[in-house]
Design a protein around this nucleic acid. Structure first.
Lengths: 226, 226
DNA sequence: ACCTGAACACCGTTCAAGT
DNA sequence: ACCTGAACACCGTTCAAGT
């Protein structure tokens, strides 16, 4: 009944972890975190829900593997600059963009704390921190500050994207709504949020993000000669 | 059949949003994010699952409300120091501790990006950033860097806690396992992660966290006189 | 007006039966 | 050895029926 090319055993290609993870990424990218289901996934792979468990331990393992694929690509693709600072900025931007395109990666990264995807990023950061000449006993704190900052911004930004997508509205509609809510706050209690509400729309998240990275980098070296 | 005190209408106290949120917090604290269910919750409140929807829009609304309660308390309880730096450190520590005690707060905060719980923290940060004399056009980037850093660390730390809890092991067992995994990585590709693996256990997360805050604060003012 | 709880449309995961 | 897909034990959410 179904059109089959030649005498392929049952499917075009046999089931594999890679094929499963790739299909999972497509589903996650398409309609957000909720649309990845063992039923939709197995349907897309032309198999039954149970078959997937032969290659993947459970749903959380699958999501982590999908996340690791994205992170590995982003890290590998990010340019190595002339200075450690430049390399760090490039890495940070690569992660920012990856999390923007794949809004589910941020929370997956946090859920898989300490596992491979996070270690990949930490390693790249740590090597640059060393190259910057940060003393041995301050390296961990420094690398971890940068890592956490990147994950924090990326995760939050992705949450915005996903929230906007879910509402059917686009990103700027979402920001408008947020700005409107913030400017309705009590002026006595929320002066800062109110004053900043207007800037929300105009600001470029990517620029703000880089400004934060620079802020941390600037704090790295106690000024000794500039 | 059930012991009733006097002629109370049906329950000790009538159902209210506050009572629902308080019970939700207890469930979330007890056995992690997965154990909050409209069935367990309604059972604990001696009512039916449907009754809850009279006071709460849906599960995500409920979790956000629970998160806001925790955040509001933490912010209100955090001391106002003599300098803006001191106040910022106190706020950051208060959030760190709150997320440590309530490991679900980190991800709830990220899921509710731009809503009340996050705005509370941002406002407190923003006021200190202003007090520090950061120029108007840099205030947003600065406050947002601090906010993101705090959320990033807290979220990650909480993920660790929750992961350790779920495995039945305690925190140090979990760190041991993580350190062991890291030291098994390829030395050529992961020199930093390997070298840092040994420090993982010994390090105090709270101290590292504060070091990161100081790092950012140090970057704030371009040195002009020390 | 508010609560009740069965019912609906889903989940992730398992496992006997098939090939 | 690997896949299949019905079955199990759950979910969040709704809504007619009760009080």
């Amino acid at each position: 009944m179904v059109k089959k090319s030649r005498s392929s055993p049952r499917r075009e290609e046999s089931l594999s972890r890679d094929r499963i993870v790739e299909a999972a990424i497509e589903l996650l990218d398409g309609d957000g975190e909720g649309s990845l289901t063992f039923r939709t996934l197995s349907q897309r792979l032309a198999t039954g829900p149970g078959a997937i468990y032969g290659h993947v331990a459970n749903k959380s393992d699958l999501v982590t593997a999908a996340c690791d694929t994205i992170v590995a690509r982003a890290v590998a693709a990010s340019a190595v600059g002339k200075t450690p600072q430049a390399t760090l900025r490039a890495l940070a931007l690569a992660m920012f963009d990856a999390m923007d395109v794949h809004p589910w990666v941020g929370s997956a990264l946090i859920q898989a704390a300490g596992q491979m995807p996070m270690v990949r990023i930490l390693e790249r950061i740590g090597q640059q921190v060393r190259a910057l000449g940060v003393p041995e006993d301050a390296q961990w704190a420094t690398a971890s500050a940068l890592l956490h900052y990147i994950l924090g911004v990326g995760g939050l930004n992705a949450a915005n994207t996903q929230f906007a997508r879910a509402g059917g509205a686009d990103r700027s509609d979402f920001l408008d709504a947020m700005a409107a809510t913030w400017s309705r706050l009590d002026p006595a209690e929320y002066p800062f949020a109110r004053s900043v509400a207007g800037q929300l729309r105009a600001h470029d998240d990517r620029v703000d993000f880089l400004a934060g990275i620079d802020l941390i980098l600037r704090g790295l070296k106690p000024p000794r000669g500039r």
